[in-house]
Design a protein around this nucleic acid. Structure first.
Lengths: 259, 259
DNA sequence: CGCATGTTTGAGGTGCATCAAGGAAGGTGG
DNA sequence: CCACCTTCCTTGATGCACCTCAAACATGCG
């Protein structure tokens, strides 16, 4: 990152300014106390994490990197049900039965894995852990609800704009030349399956955004967002996403573990 | 209900037989202990329940009837994000910020309302309450994931079949004349907004199912499902839904409160 | 009865998927 | 270093599934 680049938090503040959104209470950070009770996994790209650990309910806490939760129902295409970023929590019980569900690493990083039962025991004794649990579950559900609205109501342009806003909020940093540089840890097929679109259609919309001057030259897995405002204006979920991500501690590069 | 009508549990058993699905462990029932700490609401059709009760996080436990969680994002159509049936739990924090979210009663019944904090205090001291909480949250997330796949991957016929399977599992009872009688507590617009379809398209698919002999004469808010098998065969999510609903205690009419 | 609300069905348009061909990027071996 | 391959992305032509609009038809209620 360039020395004068702002952090993701600053990007969000700037974004809030554009929309005149009041400040949101900071979300609960991952309690460091959990570290001692969790298995630390260093994740590699395309690695899949087994959801069920020898039968017991398992909890996964994303510390760095990004993951996708992929679900395939019989006689149906693959659906990316959720994108997971640092701070997010996923329990194996969240995956529906009789569906092929896998947790796939999109950007390398770190994941803490522990028994759900152990996590709940800790939560019963430590208010900070309980607060984090509540917060993380509420955030997942909130994102799922937004995702349902995205899939059910938005047209293809709104869907893509929504995803780009989300990515910018999670991985973006202001670039020296103006605009926001953010990472694209997911390939086109993953994104298309998340948005319920065809990869070709996705490509077309991205080209449209490029010629409209909203996004700039795409390198490998990286993009320049020139105009956050008009992107947010094209996504009905922009304000909600900003509020959900608003208090998250880290907007640092996906690979970095928060201290 | 006719005297020789089977309960919903029996319908589910029969449905499992059709699909050769192994038995699922019974889900945790709503602990009676919560009754003393909750405000009991008798709900009327079309009534809306305020999600945020004077600022604190609120939990809603559906005891009887059915509800919809409706979400409207700015410059976007209304999305019915979830259908709630007896045993289901909804917390106000599940609704995303900056979205117009309302809980609307579709079928009259009973809802227990309490502070989330109070619920968690009880859960810390009572394993049955904790088990119910875990279970209810896992069920909601599982249903949300299936819903995302439904919206993102299914065609209109698959979507409608999925909803009908879901309704039959939740409200169906075997009829004396063969087939399964189930309730349609939601109007067309609600269903259309849940499935991300146009009401006209929904009507067309229903007509197609009727002429195909899968469903029979629709009365007001009630339908006869003649052929569960071919309906389930048209829904990629049928097995998953059966497993999720599999252990629920009540398949009785929506209006009845389980004892 | 008459109005309001909701449902069905047809005709026609469109947004997105599908198919297919071409191009860029990265990896591999010569 | 350059051919060659694989993978991923782009972009055009075409078709279909679903939406939109509109008119007729039910249903319930005052």
């Amino acid at each position: 990152m360039a020395s004068d680049a702002k952090t993701g938090d600053q990007v969000r503040t700037q974004a809030r300014g554009l929309w005149d959104t009041p400040t949101v209470p900071a979300l609960a950070a991952v309690p460091a106390a959990l570290h001692a009770h969790a298995t630390v996994l260093r994740t590699r790209r395309r690695q899949t994490l087994a959801l069920a650990l020898d039968g017991g309910e398992t909890a996964f806490i994303v510390r760095a990197g990004a993951l996708t939760l992929e679900v395939t129902l019989p006689d149906s295409g693959r659906q990316v049900a959720a994108l997971l970023f640092p701070g997010d929590l996923l329990c194996s019980s969240f995956a529906p039965p009789y569906a092929e569900a896998t947790l796939v690493v999109a950007a390398p990083g770190e994941v803490w894995r522990m028994r759900l039962a152990a996590l709940e025991t800790l939560a019963a004794g430590d208010p900070a852990v309980l607060r984090y649990l509540d917060d993380a579950v509420a955030r997942s559900m909130g994102r799922q609800v937004i995702h349902a609205a995205t899939l059910g109501q938005f047209n293809c342009e709104q869907r893509v704009a929504t995803l780009l806003v989300d990515l910018a909020l999670h991985t973006g940093a202001s670039s020296p030349g103006g605009g926001i540089v953010f990472e694209l840890p997911f390939n086109r097929k993953d994104v298309a399956d998340y948005l319920g679109l065809n990869p070709d259609t996705l490509s077309r919309v991205m080209s449209r955004f490029k010629t409209a001057g909203i996004i700039g030259q795409l390198e490998r897995n990286r993009a320049l967002l020139r105009d956050f405002g008009s992107l947010a204006a094209r996504s009905p979920a922009a304000r909600s996403l900003m509020a959900i991500s608003g208090g998250q501690p880290s907007g640092a590069p996906l690979g970095a573990v928060a201290v």
